[in-house]
Design a protein around this nucleic acid. Structure first.
Length: 211
DNA sequence: ACCCAGGTGGCCC
DNA sequence: GGGCCACATGGG
């Protein structure tokens, strides 16, 4: 667990993930990046910014056609336009229009609240808790599952089980979780995908089957 | 012309 | 409670 982290840290260095300017921007990015390449999300966020829609009020009031045209590069654009506008409205009606107010409920209450929103599942909720809230919530994504399954770090498959497994084996440190998750993704992209034969893998036996 | 990308919700059994 | 499926654009 910590050895894997050390090896990745040594190989790739600090990642400094998710440099959004506000919690709201971060949360929108988390929704927009669902099953979508981050490069496409950047375009969508830039479009929203250009239209002044990176604030809850303006987004809540925007015409859906405008939101769709901004979000289109991120894919699933009809769903995502609807979701982010509904998120803005929900934040205003339930949490004073501030992600910080929502996150101020504490890790568990904020998580339950996020999960109650249609369009936010466990991974998106944990991303927001970790990257916008600074809470130690370990994010389990497709890369993390693959790593855990093949290493094999764990036999667990469900989200909750996998998350418990990682969290139990590490100190509850949001900086660590932040960096660890980013490193797993970096490793998958830069090494596993680029070199399926796995020469020089920092994890030694971590990459030998299926990337 | 494939395949995949920092998932989620709705159905079906 | 697990197994499919739709959702959609952009890059390799």
């Amino acid at each position: 667990m910590t050895q894997v982290y050390s090896a990745l840290q040594r190989a790739y260095g600090p990642q400094r993930w998710w440099p959004a300017e506000t919690g709201f921007e971060m949360a929108l990015g988390a929704i927009l990046t669902q099953n979508t390449a981050w490069s496409n999300v950047e375009k969508a966020v830039a479009n929203l910014k250009a239209e002044g829609l990176l604030e809850p009020g303006p987004l809540a009031r925007a015409h859906i056609s405008k939101v769709r045209s901004c979000v289109r590069p991120a894919g699933y654009y009809r769903q995502k336009a609807e979701r982010i506008r509904r998120f803005a409205r929900w934040l205003i009606s339930e949490h004073q229009g501030e992600v910080a107010v929502l996150l101020g409920l504490g890790k568990e209450k904020a998580r339950a609240e996020l999960l109650s929103f249609n369009g936010i599942g466990p991974e998106t909720a944990d991303s927001i808790l970790l990257y916008a809230g600074g809470y130690p919530a370990f994010v389990i994504d497709a890369y993390t599952r693959r790593l855990a399954n093949r290493y094999p770090l764990s036999k667990e498959r469900g989200y909750a089980e996998l998350q418990s497994f990682f969290q139990a084996g590490l100190p509850a440190d949001s900086e660590l979780f932040n960096e660890y998750h980013a490193l797993i993704v970096k490793h998958a992209k830069e090494h596993c995908r680029a070199r399926p034969e796995c020469g020089g893998c920092p994890l030694a036996k971590g990459c030998e089957s299926r990337h």
